[in-house]
């Protein structure tokens, strides 16, 4: 860890110290483990904080940090029983306010949640946002998230996860074909406006990630989901590469790397002149790649293998060829 990132954690530790004091004040006797669980931190971090608080205070009239100018705890209880009993308070006794950015981060998160069907209680969300605004020491930063259209699929899948039942749907794969899938839903995730179901696919007999907007004829079944609890951990990244995946070398301007971060996170980048760089993508097949590359037209060029270049070229060619004829109104269906 660099020196800079080490010291940047000091404000977080300060926030913890300032929050811990009023909490301990409200709890006459409390175990270290209970405090750790409440704040979601390790017991070690709680003990460090208590050790620091217990020897801290104000300079006082003598400017010498005399005994009465310091916090105090029952040391025997702390050292023998891992229990915190605060016996003397100095200067602060209340929760600190939120900063403008802290309040803004939660408010924007609430705006995002409020666009989802299960958080339909707009009144409750509005009341929370008002409290955060009033509890901030300055006007919250102007971060805002627009309402997004929510789909019924979110509701169906969330209920299926909760009821532990399988779901069925037709799924368009990136080759363009449709397949009927039966899935034990494990988690429903979103990234910005895109929603994903992660679950055990009975067809593939493996954990798979599905885009909700590629599903049709989605239904929850009566069949219970299999028990995947203990043996199955979901990776943090949505898409995992496997040993069978194909490597594709692409070239793009360096600032464009952010746009493909989901696809090529761990591969080294080589500079090939100017702002242009090359990197390697791992893809299951070239049909997903052709869609990605044409979506990033003018930015990404596939270098090798030739088959990948060819797949991309044909996809773009077929798309472009439609326009060779002048635009006509479509025939009535």
């Amino acid at each position: 860890m660099t020196e800079a990132s080490k010291s940047s954690r000091a404000p977080d530790k300060l926030a913890f110290l300032l929050s811990l004091v009023p909490y301990l004040m409200d709890h006459e006797r409390i175990g270290v483990a209970a405090v750790a669980a409440h704040f979601g931190v390790s017991a070690t971090r709680v003990r460090e904080a208590v050790n620091l608080i217990a020897v801290s205070g104000v300079p006082g009239e003598t400017r010498q940090y005399q005994h009465g100018d310091l916090f105090d705890i029952q040391w025997d209880e702390f050292e023998d029983n891992d229990v915190i009993v605060l016996t003397h308070l100095v200067a602060i006794d209340d929760a600190p306010r939120f900063s403008a950015r802290e309040a803004a981060a939660l408010i924007a998160g609430l705006q995002y949640l409020s666009s989802l069907p299960e958080n339909a209680d707009q009144g409750a969300i509005a009341s929370l946002m008002a409290k955060l605004t009033r509890g901030a020491s300055a006007t919250p930063s102007q971060l805002a998230v627009a309402k997004s259209e929510s789909t019924d699929a979110i509701t169906v899948i969330r209920a299926a996860v909760g009821n532990n039942v399988q779901v069925e749907f037709d799924y368009v794969n990136s080759r363009g074909g449709q397949e009927h899938r039966r899935v034990d839903p494990l988690r429903i995730e979103s990234v910005d406006r895109d929603w994903y179901l992660r679950g055990w696919c009975h067809l593939r007999e493996a954990v798979r990630t599905f885009r909700l907007d590629r599903m049709s004829a989605l239904t929850a079944t009566d069949a219970p989901s299999g028990d995947h609890g203990a043996g199955l951990t979901l990776p943090d990244t949505l898409f995992e590469s496997t040993a069978e995946d194909l490597s594709v070398v692409i070239e793009l301007p360096e600032p464009g790397l952010a746009l493909i971060a989901d696809y090529a996170p761990e591969f080294p980048v080589t500079h090939v002149g100017g702002e242009r760089v090359r990197t390697t993508l791992r893809v299951a097949h070239f049909h997903g790649l052709k869609r990605l590359v044409t979506r990033l037209a003018g930015l990404v060029t596939v270098i090798e293998p030739a088959e990948a270049r060819d797949t991309v070229a044909r996809w773009a060619e077929e798309g472009a060829a439609q326009y060779d004829a002048p635009a006509l109104p479509p025939a009535e269906a």
Binding site: F16, S19, Y23, F39, F98, A104, A105, A108, L132
Partner: peptide
């Protein structure tokens, strides 16, 4: 940074018990 700031806001909320 918004993730870090959200966590800090939760820490402050934690002081309310």
């Amino acid at each position: 940074s918004l993730s870090a700031e959200s966590r800090r806001a939760l820490t402050k909320l934690g002081s309310l018990g």
